[in-house]
């Protein structure tokens, strides 16, 4: 009898200690809408294929996913992908993270960038400056398997002062669902 009361009291104290921690974890996440992670069509959920495969955590060259060139950290899938739950990522603590919240995985190593991203210094936001904003996820700009930003094609050079009236007719180009008008380049 005495022991049970004692146990209940200890349990209550432990539960109280946990509370502020979970609250802090919630605060840590930005309350915003983000874009969708750019998963290759048909590849998700990963468990579709992986369910029938025995998990193998040995670091090796894969016979599938060969298009992925890993150039990130110490180059092993299971640093971020989870071994047992294939449809989730995991943090170093073992906490599972869905793909939509992958910034929590990236933020473990890139803490300063994560901090900047949350307040809008790093990364891109679209929408309304005084209203609803959409944050781009890390993987919308950086390929998670090879995160260095890739060069982009350059748009036409401005005309020199004596040639401003000899500009070719402007034609539409689509860039990220936006129609831009640029002078015809003839390429």
């Amino acid at each position: 009898m005495r022991f049970r009361e004692y146990a209940v009291a200890i349990f209550a104290v432990l539960a109280l200690c946990m509370l502020p921690q979970t609250a802090a974890a919630d605060q840590d996440e930005p309350k915003v809408t983000t874009t969708k992670p750019p998963l290759t069509e048909g590849i998700f959920p990963c468990s579709n294929c992986h369910a029938s495969m025995p998990p193998n955590k040995e670091k090796r060259d894969l016979s599938f996913h060969t298009e992925i060139q890993l150039k990130h950290g110490d180059n092993w899938c299971l640093n971020c992908h989870d071994l047992t739950n294939r449809d989730m990522l995991h943090r170093a603590s073992g906490e599972l993270v869905p793909f939509e919240k992958l910034y929590k995985v990236c933020g473990q190593c890139h803490g300063n960038i994560y901090r900047d991203w949350k307040i809008g210094i790093h990364g891109k936001r679209v929408g309304y400056w005084n209203g609803e904003k959409t944050y781009y996820l890390c993987v919308n700009c950086h390929n998670p398997h090879s995160p260095k930003f890739k060069p982009l094609p350059a748009l036409p050079v401005p005309a020199k002062p004596l040639e401003i009236t000899k500009v070719k007719p402007s034609v539409p180009v689509m860039i990220e669902d936006k129609k831009l008008y640029i002078p015809e380049t003839g390429k």
Binding site: P153, P158, I164, P169, L180, Y181
Partner: peptide
């Protein structure tokens, strides 16, 4: 330096194409 901003601006603000 990709100049996308330059042409997004030209498109949005109806800037003269010729003279540029």
């Amino acid at each position: 330096g990709c100049r996308r901003c330059v042409y997004a601006c030209v498109t949005e603000n109806n800037l003269s194409r010729n003279p540029q």
